[in-house]
Design a protein around this nucleic acid. Structure first.
Length: 418
DNA sequence: TGACGTCAAGATCCG
DNA sequence: CGGATCTTGACGTCA
């Protein structure tokens, strides 16, 4: 079982994907942005490799305006060496990658210009994966598109346009149920007819369900037969509802107990799970350590090092409970550990606790800090105490200090990003 | 015509 | 002037 995340790695330095607006998309700017984005992708791959993450969705923003005439570069040729080098790292790390054009790539539009652009966009995505030299189990995930008041006709148009796609695109294309129009039953019908693998998305199904009130496990089992050997292991998308937002919105983090129950319900190991969640790689690491059978106490302690100041800031009682839990060296309490972390993240911290955590962090450089820096920190803490400055401003100051004094331990901390 | 979703770029504000 | 914060852009469909 591989578990992964989509597009960006939070808290990993210099891994952002850069873009630009159309009017600035000249060859020089695009060349600079692509060079940066490929370098960032390489860093993400290395991070994934270090953290045993073997499933990753590459951002469609990798090549800005990659499928648009606005981009006149021969980016495939210009960056052939970089693509090939990153591809090598992906294969060496045993990572399976994918791409996922968004809701605006609509292959079944009745407007020829739009469906044509969609096809070009798919060609772009396939070219990225081809350039990386990854095999056809590295997929492009697509939604069927719009309904246009006539689903039958819209599906026919999808089928026609699908058959016209170049073979390298069709070899990689897989289809996913969406949250409004085409449910998993529709998808299974299309997938079986066109011999296209189907990705099951549980949250989309909860908003736009297939018939019969069938379980997730049922639909996952139905989808399995749409995956051939060449397509690689069956893939599914997994996400949880954000309780504070409208139905279909992704949760800020994966609630581990719920995830473990879901995995138990599937009862299979021969499946790849792509998480769609706000905290991205953080939840991926969590789920891997809890569900893959590959975690150890050493990794939990590494995780604790990253979460601890955030936990201290929100909930000192959870901080103490986790320390007690991790002192039991004879077992591997991963799920309990993350449940305590989740509890702390949902706890509204007091101002006093925030100051206490900030003082702990300040301890890393209070002896090296200049007089000016000491004054600035004390002033910021005082201003926060009087309600004149948000805690975020105090933390930004601490982050700057951590960067200046190269406190590696702190720079890896989620204290600054959660 | 605006909402939808997503992210960063771009624009503007502020001390 | 630099940094923080607000707005726009890019995409297509549908109410």
């Amino acid at each position: 079982m591989n578990i992964g995340y989509a597009c960006l790695a939070v808290g990993v330095a210099n891994t952002d994907q850069k873009s630009c607006i159309r009017k600035n998309a000249d060859p020089e700017t695009l060349t600079r942005l692509i060079a940066h984005n490929l370098d960032a992708l390489g860093k993400i791959i290395d991070y994934n490799s270090r953290n045993d993450i073997r499933l990753f969705r590459i951002s469609s923003d990798l090549i800005p305006f990659g499928s648009s005439p606005v981009n006149t570069l021969d980016w495939s040729g210009d960056f052939a060496a970089e693509f090939s080098e990153i591809g090598k790292r992906i294969r060496n790390a045993g990572i399976r990658v994918s791409m996922h054009p968004g809701q605006y790539t609509v292959l079944n539009s009745p407007v020829d210009e739009i469906s044509k652009r969609a096809a070009e966009d798919l060609v772009y995505h396939a070219r990225v994966l081809d350039n990386l030299g990854v095999d056809r189990s590295n997929k492009i995930i697509l939604h069927v598109g719009g309904a246009y008041n006539d689903k039958i006709e819209a599906l026919k148009r999808f089928e026609r346009n699908y058959r016209l796609l170049p073979e390298p695109v069709r070899n990689r294309l897989v289809l996913e149920n969406d949250d409004r129009i085409y449910n998993i039953e529709d998808l299974l019908e299309i997938g079986r007819k066109l011999h296209v693998p189907v990705v099951y998305d549980n949250l989309h199904n909860s908003v736009n369900p297939g018939g019969g009130g069938k379980s997730d496990a049922h639909w996952i089992s139905e989808c399995k037969s749409t995956w051939s050997t060449q397509d690689g292991q069956q893939k599914i998308h997994y996400s949880q509802q954000n309780p504070l937002k409208k139905p279909g919105s992704h949760s800020p983090f994966i609630r581990i107990r719920e995830f473990m129950e879901y995995c138990g319900g599937i009862g299979r190991d021969d499946i790849d799970i792509m998480l769609e969640v706000k905290d991205k790689n953080l939840s991926a690491v969590k789920c891997i350590l809890c569900a893959s059978g590959r975690g150890s106490m050493r990794e939990l302690e590494r995780e604790w090092a990253k979460y601890k100041y955030k936990v201290l800031e929100n909930a000192p009682s959870d901080y103490l409970a986790i320390r007690r839990l991790l002192s039991e060296k004879n077992r591997y309490p991963a799920v309990e550990f993350y449940e305590l972390i989740e509890h702390a993240l949902q706890t509204e911290g007091t101002a006093g606790n925030a100051v206490n955590a900030a003082q702990h962090v300040w301890g890393y450089f209070k002896n090296d800090a200049t007089q000016k820096e000491k004054l600035a920190f004390n002033k910021a803490v005082d201003s926060f105490g009087m309600g004149r400055l948000p805690i975020a401003a105090v933390k930004r100051l601490l982050l700057k200090m951590a960067l200046k004094y190269e406190q590696r331990y702190l720079l890896d901390s989620y204290y600054f990003i959660l």
